[in-house]
Write a protein that binds this DNA or RNA. Structure first.
Lengths: 174, 174
DNA sequence: CCTATCATGTAATCCGTTACATGATTAT
DNA sequence: ATAATCATGTAACGGATTACATGATAGG
């Protein structure tokens, strides 16, 4: 079971049965901001889960032969058990920009300043996206509480990033 | 060329020729905080780089037959070109705790509060680690500027995380 | 001297990405 | 009609993780 497995289980649990494409829709624009993967995963992963008995697969027997997946009781139990076990494993931040900065001593100041500007902008845009999503979110409470919290953290992260790269850009500017 | 490739190239560029184990040492306790991978990667990746002519491999012909890798001119050029090209690709935060929180609606409040406490503690410890590393770092300036910057960002990130999970733990408490 | 930990390496498996492909809808 | 985009799926490759394995060194 990888994190991807639980994303699929979680989406099926929260939003009900879905096709791989439906999962793609669900993931994009929500948890996908924080944990993304190509859509092909959403074909192979449910297959694995089905083999493990955590979801059921039902396939149209005519037309496009679309598959619809639904979470089973075993799947729900597995998801619950996972959610309920606290992790102390720390987040992994995979940030190409940070990597480049880390090895930045082989570049000159102006190049690093440009990097910092580009990054500041990218983070600003992302921050916008999050706050819009959060705003459009104030309507449906309850079920989507997790999403609102994730967005709140996302905004905090973007703010920290903007502050960091922004001050770096300023500091490197002449 | 994956990010891992550039981590290896960068370490060889900054710290000079090294064996896979040496690379492991270099990575752990520095860039490894932000971009980690198992040590077996540090055996296979230099091999790939050697095939591409970006590093040279020299192997002891007796004893343990240890391999030592050194960056070539081509490798340095590739690293430089990569560093100098600004990326607008955003960081990926892979945070198991955030995932669990996202799907937290299937758990109860006390369980989420426990998760929040565990996460707060983990982030506090990590923050400690970073600030110690940053303190012990004030000595050697210049070459290690990138590392100091990365640590600064790391601390900002941990602060944001502590604030987020901390307030969540408080809010969920009764 | 023995045991634990450090140091060093290999192999196999599998997830994840990239690339390829094609059937439906919608818009112009 | 035709182009474009949405919807749906498969195949193959390779990097990353996990597991296995063993030679040195130090501590008790």
């Amino acid at each position: 079971m990888t994190p991807t497995s639980y994303v699929v289980l979680g989406c099926l649990a929260l939003a009900g049965p879905a096709t791989p494409y439906g999962l793609k829709q669900t993931v994009a624009g929500s948890i996908g901001y924080f944990w993304s993967f190509p859509h092909s995963q959403l074909y192979s992963e449910p297959e694995r889960l089905a083999r493990a008995g955590l979801v059921t697969e039902q396939r149209e027997d005519r037309g496009r032969r679309r598959r619809t997946y639904a979470i089973t009781d075993a799947g729900l139990a597995a998801l619950k058990a996972w959610v309920v076990t606290p992790t102390d494993e720390l987040p992994q931040i995979r940030d190409i920009g940070m990597l480049k900065l880390y090895f930045g001593s082989i570049a000159d100041g102006e190049q690093l300043a440009e990097l910092a500007r580009v990054r500041t902008d990218a983070h600003r845009r992302r921050r916008e996206l999050y706050s819009e999503a959060a705003a459009g979110h104030d309507s449906g409470p309850g079920i989507r509480a997790g999403e609102a919290l994730a967005l709140r953290f996302g905004i905090a992260f973007e703010d920290a990033s903007i502050a960091f790269w922004g001050s770096l850009a300023k500091g490197l500017n002449d």
